[in-house]
């Protein structure tokens, strides 16, 4: 599903990723670890197609609409409500039964009560949970999760654990984390960036 050959990415004069070769097959879970600044986020952005590699090639065998990408930022409009944000993404991703799916996700991640509040008033944890809703909204086959646990309290972390447990095997996952203990049991492959 994902194939990387000699992939490198530089920003201005700094090489953040150099000469990576790996393959992720359908149903696998790739765990990407490494200290801050080692290029984990860059790698996931490359897989999502947001960045183009400056060396080598990376191929993802899925169209954009089947990929879900969780970034550091929530990728939601602060001036819109949680519901309006998900409505927008639901329309853009042509989600079938948009209202039901949106409602179910908001409820699952504990945001139903605040669905009419502007995202700007959300805490970091709430924004992260909304981002998770956004990522799962269109039921993607490939999930690219960049630090999915960041900013979450214990109860929210268990929500992410559930998501991973459900998805493992059924979907393809790439998870970048610098606290990999939760994910390692599920991982079929690991990639440690220097």
């Amino acid at each position: 599903m994902i194939q990387a050959r000699g992939v490198g990415r530089r920003f201005a004069s700094k090489r953040v990723i150099r000469d990576l070769d790996f393959e992720v097959r359908a149903g696998e879970l790739l765990l990407v670890t490494g200290p801050n600044g080692s290029g984990k986020s860059t790698l996931l952005a490359l897989m999502a197609g947001l960045l183009a590699p400056t060396e080598g090639e990376i191929e993802v065998d899925l169209p954009r609409g089947r990929i879900g990408y969780l970034a550091h930022e929530a990728l939601v409009y602060k001036e819109l409500t949680a519901l309006e944000n998900l409505e927008l993404y639901g329309r853009l991703y042509h989600v079938a039964e948009r209202r039901e799916t949106t409602g179910a996700l908001l409820e699952r991640f504990g945001l139903w009560e605040v669905r009419h509040q502007r995202v700007g008033s959300f805490s970091r944890g709430m924004q992260q949970r909304l981002a998770l809703c956004r990522v799962l909204l269109h039921d993607p086959e490939l999930l690219l999760l960049d630090e999915p646990y960041s900013g979450l309290d214990a109860s929210a972390r268990s929500l992410v654990d559930d998501v991973l447990a459900e998805a493992a095997g059924a979907k393809t996952l790439v998870v970048a984390s610098h606290e990999p203990e939760h994910v390692r049991p599920l991982a079929t492959q690991a990639l440690a960036l220097a």
Binding site: L50, I67, L75, Y77, Y89, L92, Y93
Partner: peptide
């Protein structure tokens, strides 16, 4: 802000 443009660019539209 919040790099939302990335979210729009990733959408299949």
């Amino acid at each position: 802000e919040q790099r939302v443009l990335d979210g729009l660019v990733l959408a299949p539209c």
